[in-house]
Nucleic acid binder design. Structure first.
Lengths: 322, 322
DNA sequence: TCCCCTTATTGTCAGATCGAATATAATCGG
DNA sequence: CCGATTATATTCGATCTGACAATAAGGGGA
């Protein structure tokens, strides 16, 4: 237990251990016409990505380059999501590992310079069960719940049964529990484990139709997307990142619709206004919106100064507990 | 803008782009006798780490192996922290990039199997300004504040001056602002930017004495530690991770002291109890503690069941806003 | 012009939560 | 038996939250 090699960080250039192929990959999100959208490239459902090259000073800058090259979209806000590096995470033939450093990026659709081999897709195409904005749970959710309970029951021993059942109940809001929109990743992983999504089974089991279980993506991109959705849904609650997705000027209802699009649930209008205003996140422009019927709405802009004034860590924004 | 290579994730085995050296690195934390401690190896202040090798199924498992090998400590709870990959982040001679995937791990000191070339250090040795448990700010904080204001004033244009001053004021709680214990990383990065920590200046400027500016670490390990501290300080507020650091059985005061050690600030005792109890995080063992003077305290154990019962995302634990 | 429909904006109210402070209980050492 | 020490239980007011109600300001059609 003592004669092992002690490695102080930066030595050992002799062996090939630690060499690996490293990719940068982006979950680029915008909200277009009240729909939360994902930027994909090519025909298949693929996230923009590219190798992390030596000429890149930082992964962020490398990522900006790749995304702009592949989609024509300049990226604004970027944050690191997660590094995926499990050995068998891509259907690999070779004996080389692929490491993907993933990022969450926020933009607006209008910022594209040109159309290209890329496109926007509502992220609810990939996760139909996540959209609860209609007030009632989306169709198909009950099918998934039923199949998940089947899967739980199919476990060998009773302990595993109960444990599976518990996880399903929490993640999918069964048994008097409330729906928690932040559990997107957990839900996807359960569906994957239960082979209820296409990419999971390897053709063995038969998942529900795509209208219920959603569109699959290349490799593990859907998992990466789920990671991004989860992160964004939790982040909008304590950091004013929504504004990265808004036009320079907007009405409070537009802001609310954007938050609702991301969260996949409805918010009480007066309460939302109260929260936004008492936190002084926005200021009136003086103009009003030419709107679609009804009283004209005041236009607001984001008070960028709040980023300098406050430390957003543990504070609160819209959306509270159920 | 259109004729660029579209890379669907897993191709391009031809060029060496994307090849890099990948390390796994761990911030291993325990709380020993009320002090939050970091596990280091060797003589210098170095985090346990090792290359991510092909035989590792996942980075987590690789990390467990390296840490156990280098320190004799089995790891319990692990979570990914951040992937550091900037080109010049290590004083590099070669033209090869080093990517470090960092993890936060929680253990207890007693779980060591044998002593070895490793040791525990209070993390406040590295960040003396972070320990506010005495009620009053630690000595030296005012020195840092003063030097930071100097640095802000030294900026070229007034805009940069104000921007620097704002950041300093928020991070270090100047000007009526409250101390926010979650800003550890921001504080470290400001000190680095202002060349007030040893590893920053490259010998150019003269940082304050170590008693004020803290002990340096190898390469950028101190930044990685700061990332870990920040993560842990925010995480204890919404997930019951503290219990990973507790003995199987403990008194509520011990639990409180542990949280205080991590947060670097004092908590009101009755309120802490109320929070812990009403969330049903613990259950009585029936025994009481043979303690050091005063009425004996009931012993509790963590109710592991809560992990299955509740979805910890957005919920709350101890420590509230100031 | 007036009525009605739609959306915007403001206000109310009860319950939960939070921070602070107080009161009571149990043990130990003299 | 007293007082020092720590544990545990309670109270109170301020604030925050969620649900809901009420009023304001436009547009369109009768």
């Amino acid at each position: 237990m003592e004669d092992r090699q002690i490695r102080p960080g930066t030595d050992g250039a002799d062996d090939k251990a630690g060499e690996a192929k490293v990719d940068l990959i982006a979950v680029v999100v915008a909200v277009n016409d009240g729909e939360p959208c994902l930027l994909t490239i090519g025909e298949a459902d693929t996230l923009p990505s590219g190798p992390f090259a030596l000429e890149h000073r930082s992964p962020q800058s490398g990522l900006r380059g790749w995304v702009e090259q592949q989609t024509g979209h300049p990226l604004g806000y970027i944050e690191q999501l997660y590094t995926f590096a499990d050995r068998d995470r891509v259907g690999t033939e070779r004996q080389q590992r692929v490491i993907s450093i993933s990022y969450l990026a926020l933009t607006r659709k209008e910022q594209a310079t040109a159309s290209c081999a890329c496109g926007w897709h509502s992220w609810y195409e990939y996760f139909p069960w996540e959209d609860h904005r209609s007030g009632t749970p989306p169709e198909g959710l009950d099918i998934l719940r039923a199949r998940l309970v089947e899967w739980a029951d199919a476990a060998g021993d009773p302990a595993t049964q109960r444990e599976r059942w518990q996880r399903v109940a929490i993640a999918f809001g069964i048994d008097e529990r409330h729906w928690n929109e932040e559990l997107t990743l957990q839900r996807y992983e359960l569906l994957y484990e239960a082979a209820l999504v296409e990419e999971a089974s390897g053709g063995k089991a038969t998942p529900p139709p795509a209208a219920v279980s959603g569109k699959a993506m290349v490799a593990d991109h859907r998992r990466i997307l789920a990671t991004g959705v989860t992160r964004l849904r939790s982040k909008i609650k304590y950091r004013p990142v929504v504004f990265e997705l808004m036009r320079p000027t907007f009405t409070l209802l537009q802001l609310q619709r954007t938050v609702e699009a991301l969260a996949g649930r409805l918010i009480d209008k007066p309460n939302f206004r109260r929260l936004v205003e008492q936190q002084e996140l926005v200021e009136e422009t003086g103009d009003t919106s030419v709107d679609t019927g009804g009283r004209p709405a005041k236009l607001y802009r984001f008070r960028r100064a709040v980023l300098d004034e406050r430390a957003f860590a543990g504070t609160k924004l819209p959306l509270s507990r159920a």
